[in-house]
Amino acid sequence: MDLAFIAAVFPKLLAGLPLTLSLAVLSLSGGAILALLLSGLRASSWLGAQFANFYVYIFRGTPLLIQIFLIYYGLAQFPALRHSLLWPLLREPYVCAVLALMLNDAAYTSEILRGGLRAVSSGAIEAAKVAGMSRPTMLRRIVLPLAFRQALPAYGAEVTSMVKATSLASVVTLMEVTGLARAEVSQSYRAIEVFLCAAVIYLVLVTLITRLVHWLEDRLSTHRSPALDRSPA
């Protein structure tokens, strides 16, 4: 192992971290909103539920990489689209990558949300009804928080898997951590050192996120009452 080389590579790869993070944050937020919409659609009507199921089936049944290629190179094949108002957006590799990651994340997140919603006890809902809560209030104050807590471990795994998935954005010319690593390999011809450096960056990032999610799980645990929280550790 050439330590001087590794010391030189690390800062080069870290330069891609902001892009990696922004891809992850944007696609996770977009994915979460879409997942909520899908859940709404599922609850709305038979047709809506069929659509939501079909959406999840398509996006979970195919590799993310092919979804990215289809959106980036596939859509650009149509002159009508290239002359449309959407083109200034879809022209950008960044937008295409976020779009693909977001659509993919929505499929997985909506399934996680479905699991969480199913776990909300009917007792809690009845209690809310008896207390005279309106449907939106109930949703906002009872159902969604309970479902969120229930789904948190699975959602935490989804967050880390999205952070890792941003590495695929490098196939559409984006220079995030993996993209920079690939470029560095083709310049220095030293694959193992460079990819190991990149792996360490992701590993640290994912470990931090996992810790954060565990901490959040602890905080939101039902068996921990606020009174206990305030007691000296």
């Binding site: 990819f195 994912v206 470990t207």
Partner: peptide, 8 residues
């Protein structure tokens, strides 16, 4: 579980 599949 901490490293992107592509890098592995």
């Amino acid at each position: 579980r901490g490293i992107p599949d592509l890098l592995v």
